[in-house]
Nucleic acid binder design. Sequence first.
RNA 1: GGAGAGAUGGCUGAGUGGUCGAAAGCACAUCUUUGCUAAAGAUGCGUAGCCUUUAACAGCUACCGAGGGUUCGAAUCCCUCUCUCUCCGCCA
Length: 423
Amino acid sequence: MLDIRLFREKPDYVKERLSTRGAGLSSMVDEVTSLDEQRREAETERQKLQGDRNRISKEIGIAKKKGEDTSAIEAQVRGIGDRIEQIGRDADALDVKQRDLMLGIPNLPHDACPIGESAEQNPEVKVWGEKPSYDFAPKDHVALGAQHGMLDFEAGAKITGSAFVVYRGAGARLERALINFLLDLHTTSHGYTEVNTPFVVKADALVGTTQLPKFADQVYHCQEDDLYLVPTAEVPVTNLHREEIVKLESLPIQYAAYTPCFRREAGSAGLGTRGLIRMHQFDKVELVKITTPETSMEELEKLTANAEVVLQTLGLHYRIIELCTGDVGFGSSKTYDIEVWAPGQGTYLEVSSCSNFGEFQARRMNLRYKDENGKNRFCHTLNGSGTALARLFVALVETYQQADGSIAIPAPLQRYFGTEKIG
RNA sequence: GGAGAGAUGGCUGAGUGGUCGAAAGCACAUCUUUGCUAAAGAUGCGUAGCCUUUAACAGCUACCGAGGGUUCGAAUCCCUCUCUCUCCGCCA
């Protein structure tokens, strides 16, 4: 959520920034400011009447002690009470309306975020390694998965539905090895604290990290208990500190967490992809940082670098693109996407999206810290995948397939997996 | 799932309809004093919003787990919910 004061004081700036995301957003600014004016007018009136009531009610108490008759003055206060209720209803309604509107307005892209209209304009900012070449026709992970009995899409469809998979044998073991490898890497080499959270959360948590209310159709909801399956560990982990005032000395707070991620992918009918690329459930190790406003941009660079180490250690070719203003996510002010090369697909796959949300999420979840002057200020929050598992699995098996059909396991992963190759 | 108890400011803990945003203690901050590494005294010490303002101060409003209700007036009475603790049941 954005700061309402920014709308009052610099409406043109807010409009200008929002318009870099796309047309149509800047008109919301005028809607907010006019609503805000009405709301405050009603609020001020209500508060003035409440003051009257408080004052006169006290007088009644004093008069009663003296044994005086107070029926006339009581009637007067009753009248005030009625007006408070009327005006209060207006004020509350305007307040809800304003909040709903504000929750639907995306974050302002940072000045450092490149201007652009769509994904085509995302600049490539880094390339690491090279596309591997093969003297045979590389297979894709679906074929390799079937060949080694690692991936069973039919079983996933049978017990749950399409876009769910069953990992078997070496596949299940590889998935588990990768999770352990990633958690160990980030906790021992990069200073993150491992957390293991619930995989279901309440609505407030999703509002805090911006999945609700706008993207309600993308999350699985358990109606009976009003709980949601996490679409990413970002949700439970960032919300760990919601409604807290954290100590300045504790910043930056850095967490690494493994969770499965559940996404309805509504709107992407058939999901349009083969294999593991786009599933309703996939594993992911997520990195989350809570920082001061002054350090968040440099922490974004570090976070991205931490995620890159994963691919470097595994020897996987990747590139980094920076999302332009027209493509950057709803809550983000600046985002890097890391895309790994998958030879069997002949394409890059997004395995990590590293974002600085500024105070956008912190404001929604009321996450603050006390600064040097003892003043409460909103923290900045960041997160990035470190990395998504399913696509990492894809890149790994497709990259390391051998002419004889076997799959080599990169050296750093061998102690987690147990052997040097599959097949 | 059943029975009972509870939820008050950073912490402990008073307060059962009227000058209560809330006693007291602890902790913390500043100052003073004695002096020596501890003690005494004074003052201050919640959050958010509104109004005003260059800014601050002052003022006003709301907040005593959450949401409703009763009342001229609610931390205090009533209802619903959430969470915590104890006992019983069930259970990996």
